[in-house]
Amino acid sequence: MNTTANIILHKANTRGYANHGWLESYHTFSFAGYQNPERTHFGVLRVLNDDRVSGGMGFGNHPHDNMEIISIPLEGDLQHQDSMGNTAVIRKGDIQIMSAGTGISHSEYNKNKDELAKFLQIWIFPNKRNVDPRYDQLTLNLEDRHNRLQQVLSPNADDEGVWIHQDAWFHLGTFDQDFGTTYSLKKEGNGVYAFVLKGSFQIGETTLDTRDGLGITGADSISIKALTEGAEILLMEVPMQLPRI
């Protein structure tokens, strides 16, 4: 990591929290009843919610527009329906994307009545407004992220993973203890937000534990080392300038 890089550390226990009975949600950035003027976004990364949905419960039909909405299931099964006629189930190993564009409505429910569903809900500001709404999901090969950063999202429809209307790249990795690697940024001026799903990592000189987040700007690459066996991480490379559209 460049010596001139800037970092911002968000420890897991400093996130916003909401308990709606059927839903427990941790908010890295301001969302709904959690409003923190120092945590409104990281570049075009607007929302990073860590959600736990009780059995048989979920989000009723509700609208969105002009946002790229990504869901990454961590445990259990989520039943999806939307105004474009899509009906699908997503589970761990899948990634789901909705380009809300001119407007879309959808619902997400825990398909199972006897177990929790856990997933990340991520919102990205798009670089184009009022696009045609779009839905996609993809089942990923979990073996492809063992001691490797598996690309799961990009700006390119013909690239690995799903694609969105933004110059953003997401990678997931699961690492053996003491395994290290380097992530090189794809686009000059972008930043990286690292979010630890499980275990502990060292990124540069910073130690991160489960559900800690670290924003990095001013770097062209970052070094990553797993400190625990089976440690899992999500890297989100995003533009730091909000789109002027």
Rank of each mutant, 00 (worst) to 15 (best):
G58N: 07
N147C: 05
M236L: 11
L120C: 04
G191R: 00
I104V: 08
D159G: 08
A157R: 14
H10I: 11
H146R: 13
D77E: 13
H41M: 06
D167C: 07
M236H: 03
K92N: 13
I95C: 05
Q121R: 03
G21A: 01
L149T: 04
S105T: 15
Q151F: 00
L9V: 13
Y193W: 13
S105N: 10
H165S: 12
F175L: 00
L23M: 12
T182K: 13
N112E: 11
T206Q: 11
D77T: 12
Q79M: 09
R211Y: 15
K118D: 04
R148Y: 12
L197E: 03
D178L: 13
I69S: 05
N2G: 04
N127C: 08
M98V: 04
M98R: 06
T210R: 04
N49E: 03
T217W: 00
T210M: 12
R145F: 09
L235R: 07
S154L: 05
F42N: 00
D176L: 01
D220Y: 10
T87N: 11
Q96H: 09
G60Y: 12
I72T: 06
N6V: 07
T14E: 15
G33H: 10
L242F: 11
T139N: 14
S200D: 12
V238Y: 03
L153V: 01
N19H: 14
D159E: 11
T4M: 10
D220V: 09
W169Y: 15
G180T: 07
D158I: 11
H171W: 15
H41Q: 12
Y135V: 01
G101T: 01
I7D: 03
S200Y: 02
K113G: 07
I216H: 08
D220W: 09
G189V: 07
F201E: 01
Y109S: 01
Q202K: 15
Q202S: 14
T207R: 14
E38L: 11
N19K: 07
T206E: 14
F31M: 05
D212F: 01
I124S: 04
L234T: 04
L242I: 09
Y17W: 10
E108G: 03
P239H: 00
T210D: 10
N130L: 08
K111A: 15
D77R: 13
D144R: 13
G213T: 06
R148N: 15
I203V: 15
A194V: 12
F31N: 05
T40Q: 14
